[in-house]
Design a protein around this nucleic acid. Structure first.
Length: 417
RNA sequence: CGGGGUAUAGUGUAACGGCAGCACGAGUCGUUUGGGACGACUUAAUCUCGGUUCGAAUCCGAGUACCCCGACCA
């Protein structure tokens, strides 16, 4: 991608009226654009990051048997009345009216549309288990939006729903899903600061597991067990003075943001929709369900909260919009030609590269913007480096740059990927 | 929804009740090119409605929007 053609604009000025770092940086660096409170566009750069996050999630869901599908956002009122959530979620549900005053819901989650589909597919124990998932927009009229893309009224979420013949099968799969979640956060570059956290199950069950990323802007307080590394949410800490996993008692208190949550739904939704199956013994039994969510935009914001410095964002390689930020300095033809060649060569080797091909920009401007954008590798090519047939490679977030022979550039970048 | 704050060019900020200015950005031309260049010219703003006043960006009232704190959530 040529930077001169990229649909974005950065600014040196701090975004007015923003408190959180991710909000400020993502706006300033041209990743997102706010349309109103809690509603954002993902500009090309931001969309690239979002798609990278999505790809990691999709891959891991498919690895545990997930089948991706797409569900409607526009729901009829009746299915929400059936589960009681037309009233229960009244505060956050967007209810809209169509022709002839017919009422609809902009879906805030998708059990209500998933279960009716399952009812047409699942009849026998032979039809179970199933693990459909989807990645799409959901709407919640949050009473208060917060911190840029960390809490919004419209957000992209992955939800996987699992259907089981009995509790043992649900319990087993729940652990499989939890492992997949740990893998997702690890692959997204935040595994070391994201903790599986025992939390309240809300209206679904006694307990659920949250995945909490430690950052100062976090809204939740979690207690991390120093012995085994799992955590407990403050909301249920009083009930669990010792670690429920290893019985250890020493905790470290941290602020964290919830980037994922998994629930055992049990029969919460199969009962109202009368979703049942015929078991081996010939009797009808209710299907047991689990649900497993991750907010993609929130994860993106949380990553920025956890990974930045005073100059800008520092993307983990797996989610970065580009692997390499190529910068040429100086106006001489030879430098630009060499940069052009390197750009082509990187592309031919399937290394995602953003080339700052702009003229009339000083080194300072290019470097400053590069730091703000946060692409993992910065490659500088200039008269100075070309004097030794080299380029300069610097990792974002590290102080030192190194000179690498031009012909070894690709190899060098590869090694670090 | 309760509480607090803010509202001026694209962005960030000034202006005692008396000529709306500065910086960045953007545009044209020229000169520049290793950490946020230089010169010349240009572009563009007082949230809305009402009130007070000779006169309102400024004071008052209402509305709206945004940010922050609380309850809730991915």
């Amino acid at each position: 991608m040529l930077q001169s053609k990229l649909f974005y604009k950065t600014t040196k000025n701090k975004t007015a009226g923003t408190e959180s770092v991710s909000h400020d940086l993502l706006v300033r660096a041209g990743y997102v654009d706010q349309l109103m409170a809690g509603v954002y566009s993902f500009l090309p750069l931001g969309f690239m990051v979002l798609k990278n996050i999505e790809a990691i999630i999709r891959k891991n869901m498919e690895e545990i048997g997930g089948q991706e599908m797409l569900m409607p956002v526009l729901h009829p009122k009746e299915i929400w009345q059936k589960t009681g959530r037309w009233d229960a979620l009244n505060d956050i549900l967007f209810k809209i009216k169509g022709n002839a005053d017919k009422e609809y819901v902009l879906a805030s989650t998708h059990e209500e549309s998933m279960v009716p589909s399952a009812k047409k597919i699942i009849f026998s124990y032979r039809d179970l288990p199933f693990y459909p998932f989807h990645i799409q927009l959901k709407f919640r009229d949050e009473l208060r939006v917060k911190s840029g893309i960390l809490r919004t009224k419209e957000f992209i979420m992955k939800d996987l729903y699992s259907f089981h013949v009995n509790q043992a099968d649900l319990d087993k799969y729940y652990e499989v899903a939890a492992k997949a979640y740990e893998k997702i956060f690890k692959e997204a570059g935040v595994g070391k600061i994201t903790y599986r956290t025992l939390a309240s199950g809300g209206s679904f069950s006694k307990y659920s597991d949250e995945f909490q990323m430690v950052t100062d802007i976090g809204e939740d307080l979690i207690y991390i067990c120093k012995k085994c590394g799992i955590a407990i949410n403050k909301e249920i800490k009083a009930e669990n003075p010792v670690c429920p996993k290893c019985q250890g008692g020493e905790f470290e208190e941290k602020k964290a943001v919830e980037v994922g949550n998994i629930f055992k739904l049990g029969t919460k939704f199969s009962t109202p929709f009368d979703l049942k199956f015929t078991d081996k013994d010939g009797h009808d039994k209710p299907v047991l369900m689990g649900c497993y969510g991750i907010g993609l935009g929130r994860l993106m914001g949380a990553i920025v909260e956890a990974s930045h410095d005073d100059k800008g964002i520092i993307w983990p390689a797996a989610v970065a919009p580009f692997a390499v930020h190529l910068i040429h300095l100086g106006a001489d033809k030879k430098t630009k030609t060499s940069a052009q060649k390197l750009y082509k060569s990187l592309q031919e080797n399937n290394i995602k590269v953003l080339w700052d091909d702009r003229e009339n920009k000083t080194a300072g401007e290019k470097f400053g913007e590069s730091d703000l954008l946060g692409i993992p590798y910065r490659i500088v090519i200039s008269e100075r480096t070309l004097a030794t047939n080299s380029v300069e490679i610097k990792e974002r977030g590290k102080e030192k740059a190194k000179l690498v022979k031009l012909k070894d550039t690709i190899k060098n970048v590869r090694q670090h990927q």
